[in-house]
């Protein structure tokens, strides 16, 4: 039994019928062609699938599409490239998740302390960079 939902993704309205079991990640990737959101584990650990749901970070692999009904979804495609530019990464697969996590973090807490960044971003796995370029780019934005 499909369910009617509507949501706003990166500022554009979308409405349609979805299977109740459809994840938000699959909705975004397969139905809205927003393939910038990546899937690294599909069980809520790696953070690659992170998106913003009403401005807060959410694992789109653990969120059902029906839970996003009536809400605002922002994916990496809807965010600026400047926060964490592609050059900071190697394979780049983790980037979308980091961009969304960092964006959510800065919205919630505009001035985190640089020393706290590693803990604040501990929900995202990167296998290539050793994290330093990502953390440095973010701390460079903070005063002091």
């Amino acid at each position: 039994m499909n369910v009617k939902i509507s949501l706003v993704a990166n500022g554009l309205e979308w409405a349609g019928e979805v299977e109740p079991r459809l994840t938000l990640a699959d909705l975004l990737r397969d139905h809205l062609a927003l393939t910038g959101t990546h899937l690294g584990c599909e069980h809520g650990v790696c953070g690659a699938c992170t998106v913003l749901l009403d401005g807060q970070a959410a694992r789109s692999c653990l969120t059902l599409a029906v839970q996003a009904d009536g809400r605002q979804v922002t994916t990496v495609e809807g965010l600026s490239d400047d926060l964490l530019p592609r050059e900071l990464f190697q394979c780049g697969f983790c980037r979308s998740g980091f961009v969304c996590s960092a964006e959510a973090l800065l919205r919630r807490e505009p001035l985190p302390r640089a020393v706290e960044l590693p803990e604040l971003l501990a929900g995202n796995i990167c296998r290539c960079t050793g994290y330093e370029p990502i953390l440095e780019a973010l701390s460079a934005r903070l005063p002091g």
Binding site: V45, L121, A122, I125, Y131
Partner: peptide, 17 residues
């Protein structure tokens, strides 16, 4: 069989190198 059993380093585990 999941990333909760197979642990990999996150940002908080790696100092500046």
């Amino acid at each position: 069989a999941t990333l909760l059993d197979y642990l990999v380093p996150v940002a908080a585990d790696i100092p500046r190198i």
